[in-house]
Design a protein around this nucleic acid. Structure first.
Lengths: 129, 129
DNA sequence: TATTGTTATACTCTATAACTATA
DNA sequence: TATAGTTATAGAGTATAACAATA
C-alpha cells in the first residue's frame, strides 16, 4: 500500500492509513452523514467522499440511505470495520505505552491528564466559534 | 496555495506547508546533502527532491556543489529561507503558548519537560538501531 | 434559497523501480 | 560494488468550483 504520511507506517501493515483511522474513529458507535463526518474530522465533503470510496472498497465502511433526508447518506462501520478499528486502537495503545516507558507511572498519568486538559480546552474554544 | 494536510492551515498564510517547515528546520544552521536531509526528516530521496524543487522555486532553499563528492549536492537555506524560518517558528511558538494558556506556568513547564524526555528517549532508541 | 453529495481539476507528499553518474 | 541524485509512475489526502437533486 502506498503511504502518504510518515505516520502511516504505524498502520501500514494493517492496510489502513492514519487519516483513515481518524475517520473510522469518528464513526465509532454511531452513523454519520458525509457532511457530519467532514465536520467531525475537519475535512471537506469532496475529500471525505474520496476516502469513503476507498474504505468501501476495503469493506470497512458502508453508505446507506438517510431515513428522512433523501439527499443524505448515512455512513457506518461494517462488522469488519469495527473489528479493524479495535485492532488499530490496540496498536496505537501499545505504541503509546512503549512511549511512556521512559516515564514513571505517575509522570505518564500526569502527562495524559495535561494533554487531555489542553484537548478539552481546544474543543471548548471550537464549540464557541 | 493547495493544502495537503490539516496542519498546513497554520502555515498556509505564509505560503509554506507543514512538511516544508520540517525540512527547513532540519537545515537550520547547517548545510546537508539531499540524502542526509532525507534521513533527517525520515523521508525518501525522491520525495526530498520533489520538495526541494518547490522550495527552490519559492526561493527558500538553494542547492550547491559538494566540495569533495561530485555526486552530491549541498542544500542550504537562502537569506529569505532563514528569515521565513524565523517567522514560522514564531508562529508555532505563539500557537504553543496559546495552547498552554489553560495550564498554570508550572504545569506548562512540566508538560514540555515530559514531552522532551520522551523525544530524547525515542531519539536514543533510534540511534541504537 | 440553502444544503447534500458528486465530479472535474489541481497541488503536495508518499514511495518504488529503473536509471545515470560518480566514489 | 555501492552511493547520490533523477525520472517515471502510482496512490492518498487536500481543497475549490461547478453541478444535480433534494429540502
Amino acid at each position: 500500500m502506498a503511504m502518504h504520511r510518515n505516520t502511516d507506517a504505524i498502520f501500514d501493515p494493517h492496510g489502513v492509513t492514519a487519516d483513515q483511522f481518524v475517520l473510522l474513529l469518528a464513526l465509532e458507535g454511531k452513523s454519520l452523514t458525509q457532511r457530519e463526518l467532514a465536520d467531525r474530522i475537519s475535512s471537506d465533503p469532496s475529500t471525505v467522499r474520496a476516502m469513503l470510496v476507498l474504505l468501501e472498497r476495503s469493506g470497512l465502511v458502508e453508505r446507506g440511505n438517510h431515513p428522512t433526508d433523501s439527499r443524505a447518506k448515512l455512513v457506518s462501520l461494517t462488522t469488519l470495520g469495527k473489528r479493524k478499528l479495535r485492532i488499530l486502537w490496540d496498536v496505537g495503545q501499545s505504541i503509546r505505552e512503549s512511549m511512556y516507558g521512559c516515564l514513571s507511572a505517575e509522570d505518564a498519568e500526569l502527562l495524559v491528564a495535561l494533554l487531555r486538559k489542553i484537548a478539552d480546552s481546544l474543543k471548548q474554544e471550537r464549540s464557541l466559534v
